[in-house]
């Protein structure tokens, strides 16, 4: 029962928060939170390190921006087309990348994402260094004008919840169990009769689509799609968010995303310091707390409650 109460409380807080905190900051956090959650499906639950997730995030941002601005379609169609393109890209990249394992998988995804980056630098529809600017937000289903900050916030919150729910369903299904088996020991999963490539590919496509959803939503919020979104730094950022929050924990990446977004907000004025501090966080997390903020907190919590119950059980025996 307790997790349910927590969930309801969190939802209430999310509904009330825009009246206390600047909504655009919250929306940025939600978009990157969803991005990190989608990434975590691969890294945390399947054990695949994609170093090119910015390709899906950023290209979906471009596609939905183009659809909404040049074709004049509504936000729901804009986002849907971004997700669809990201899914197709995920399928193509996934087919290539899962042919190699481990460290090579990371290098292949990074290289493919760099290809997308160079494509975006040259393709006319992305407008090069300028990016697609002043993208109209339009009306959701032709009814709700999204230029209203609160309408926009609740739309973004709904999209975020939908994305997180999809990932939650995926990891708590038999499909998710197979993914975890692949993470723990792929050879054994294969020997049990699972076509692990199919599962890895499905996870990759799902993750890419949700990363696309996050990117398209980001376009809707900031009315901008630019080269920063497809840059390898963005790929690195989502790795950092997931790692810092705690990979393999359902909501750790969201915590990590809000942490990194806050950091960027405060350090935006001081040049390359964001990059330097992000680098230090990487080094710290990898060397000192690999379970991430949420992961370490959970580990502490379980250890603590176990100790308490153990000491309670040992009370009747006085002798040492």
């Amino acid at each position: 029962m307790r997790p349910l109460i927590g969930l309801v409380l969190a939802l209430l807080a999310a509904l009330a928060l825009p009246f206390a905190v600047y909504p655009f900051f919250l929306m940025k956090g939600l978009c990157f939170g969803l991005f990190a959650v989608s990434f975590n499906l691969l890294l945390g639950y399947t054990g695949l390190l994609s170093f090119g997730h910015a390709a899906f995030f950023g290209f979906a941002a471009y596609v939905s921006g183009h659809v909404m601005k040049q074709w004049g379609l509504g936000p729901e169609l804009g986002i849907a087309s971004g997700v669809a393109v990201a899914a197709v890209m995920g399928l193509l990249f996934g087919l290539l990348a899962i042919r190699r394992q481990g460290i090579y998988f990371a290098m292949v995804t990074l290289a493919l994402a760099q290809m997308v980056y160079f494509f975006c630098v040259q393709a006319p529809f992305t407008h090069g260094e300028d990016g697609i600017q002043a993208i109209p937000r339009g009306k959701l289903f032709g009814l709700v004008p999204l230029d209203n900050m609160y309408a926009l916030y609740y739309t973004v919150l709904a999209i975020f919840c939908l994305g997180v729910w999809v990932v939650w369903r995926a990891i708590h299904s038999p499909f998710g169990q197979v993914l975890k088996a692949i993470r723990e020991n792929e050879a054994r999963a294969t020997s049990l009769g699972y076509r692990t490539e199919h599962f890895k590919l499905a996870a990759f496509v799902l993750s890419a689509s949700l990363a696309g959803l996050a990117g398209a939503t980001k376009t809707l919020v900031f009315q901008l799609a630019s080269l920063t979104d497809v840059d390898w730094h963005t790929s690195g950022e989502v790795v950092l968010m997931t790692l810092l929050g705690g990979m393999g924990t359902p909501l750790g990446p969201v915590v990590g995303a809000f942490f990194v977004v806050t950091l960027e907000n405060y350090l935006a004025e001081v040049g390359a310091w964001v990059t330097i501090i992000q680098g230090f966080i990487f080094v710290l997390v990898v060397t000192l707390f690999r379970r991430g903020l949420v992961g370490e907190a959970l580990a502490y919590w379980t250890k603590h409650s176990r100790n308490r119950s153990r000491s309670g059980a040992s009370l009747p025996s006085p002798s040492a």
Binding site: G102, I103, A272, T275, Q278, F280, V283, V286
Partner: peptide, 30 residues
């Protein structure tokens, strides 16, 4: 730094050196 990671998944080595690359690049950019 790297010495601490040899018993872990090689991916951690990639992540650590990625962090180092960010620090170095950021410092020179600054």
């Amino acid at each position: 730094l790297l010495r601490r990671l040899y018993k872990l998944d090689p991916l951690y080595g990639l992540l650590l050196t990625f962090g180092l690359a960010l620090i170095i690049e950021g410092a020179f950019r600054q």
